[in-house]
Design a protein around this nucleic acid. Sequence first.
RNA 1: CGGGGCGUAGCUCAGCCUGGUAGAGCACUGGUUUUGGGAGCCAGUUGUCGUAGGUUCAAAUCCUAUCGCCCCGACCA
Length: 610
Amino acid sequence: MPNRVFIIGSVFLLVWRRRGAYLTARHFPRGALMIRWSQQLIPTLREAPAEAEIPSHQLMLRAGLIRKLAGGLYTFLPLGHRALRKVEQIVREEMDRAGALEVLMPAMHPQELWEQTGRFGVLKEVMFKIKDRQERNLVLGPTHEEVVTDLVAHEVQSYRQLPINLYQIQTKFRDEIRPRFGLMRAKEFIMKDAYSFDMNLEGVERSYRAMYTAYERIFKRAGLRTKAVEADTGAMGGSASHEFMVLADAGEDGVIECDACAYAANLERAEGVGRGEKVFADADKTPAVVATPNRKTITGVATFFQTTPARLIKTLIYLADEKPVAVLVPGDREVNEIKLKRALKCAALALADDVMISKVTGAPVGFAGPVGLTIPVIADEKLQGYRGAITGANQADAHLVNVDLARDAQVGTWGDLSNANAGDGCPRCGQGQLVAKRGIEVGHVFKLGTKYSEALGAGYLDPDGQRKIAIMGCYGIGVTRTLQSVIEQSHDANGIVWPISIAPYQVEVLPINVAHGPTMEAALKIAAELEAAGFDVLFDDRDERPGVKFKDADLLGLPIRVNVGEKGLAKGVLEIKLRHTGEMRTAAPEQAFAAVQAAAAELRQAVTPA
RNA sequence: CGGGGCGUAGCUCAGCCUGGUAGAGCACUGGUUUUGGGAGCCAGUUGUCGUAGGUUCAAAUCCUAUCGCCCCGACCA
């Protein structure tokens, strides 16, 4: 090795010129993976394009990882592609480790298959629909329950073939209502989806646990801090499910967690125990109308009465399957439409428009109340026992005080209809307080049951020769979203801070002045040594000012940087700079390789599962 | 789909209100000085002003339509 490096350095020096200096392939080890910046496509941007709002999206564009083709459609440039491949590889290794089998299913499906499970009707809005030349209806798969279940229905006959878990890493297509935040919500994205088939509930539990554990390992290895939360099952159907959330301000989901116990849930399903008072002043008096000109909002009314929003009863008119219903929640809470939909057992749910509201309440928007309504009334259970409350009076510019909900209104149904609030009591331990955060959903595990296996005939013969239906689970990871989440969670003012496990390159070698022979000789030597030891090395051979190269290095965020410059060489050292701490270490050229190895070992510790 | 905003150079944006024939910074090319945190000077390149139509002697600017993009809501990995 040292000989080869010497030869490389010598050849290099021979051809070196003071001006217009260049390196060609023959100056680098044959078959080397070491990449010269000048030969790569790394279009860094000094400023963030206006289209990008959140840090990870801006940085992916600025660091030259991705470029947009159209809304929700992105090209992965070489650097982004390398990182993506590394994430995929981690996913693959952990799925294999958990015993899942990799397959690759078509992205294009016959529409008929979706009609068999009844999901064409449910998902047709999000599916891209195409026709072939025979006018056959095809869809681009937004997910693959139908296809995998069809496969298993054909290929699995016996209990001896079960359990089985099939997975793929593949592109999904969803006609998103609103693509946003770069790869976070795209029309086309890469997903790892796995589907387990079991014979009984114990088997399902085992499969579910195996995936849950695999997910913890995957995200740890990818350098992500995630939180598993209880989740709503949504359009998938099924019983239990957990989402793996990356806590981040840019997250699209609300996450509620307890500060005392392990309880954590998606806001969509989180329960909160109200701790506020329910009996207010003048609780025993009869309702009275008070003029409240132009006080249409909760805060406006609360200010008018010099009281807290919690004393108000918020009354919203919804149309549930086209029929009006009044929904009551405490004034300091939001209606949770997912919970409401479940409580009403309806398919379509929407807020009523102004016309409908005045027709139903006899008052303009902002003055609705439960007293005297003739439409069905459903109330949040946190309103149980509300007395001395304030509501709209169902007439313009007026509210009703001293309302005793049980005495004065006809509540048809009670249920959990509102969002948990920060500060609520924990429904599990009863001790802690709930805290509200934002999260990005990067993974989701479901127990599906037999919805698909039954519809598509995925069954087997048990040892007694009885025909049984397989019980399914499904497990998704948004691979492209995971990649961007890492950046969202790991960056600073200067750029990306890659975990070593998924960094496009592990080491950047940065010769400060490429026109200085000894600098280049030393830089090539350490780069070649690292390369030979299996490191992915990016060699910044650009004839740029040091400041430019340093700024770009920080922006790219490769975990270990080796600076080679005249000042260091004069002191007999190379500099090894760690991106995540900013720590600068120095080592003599012959010790530099060992120093990088040591740094890499430290960085790998941080992404090694327990 | 509802609400809001924006389309002018590769990027960030000014010009539009009050019409007169397109600009700045960065980037890019060449030269030169410089060389440890986005350099200085000199010279230069870059535009169907998103598209189509209309008003006008004259349209980036006014009007209409259309396409695209971004943000807020319902959907989800």
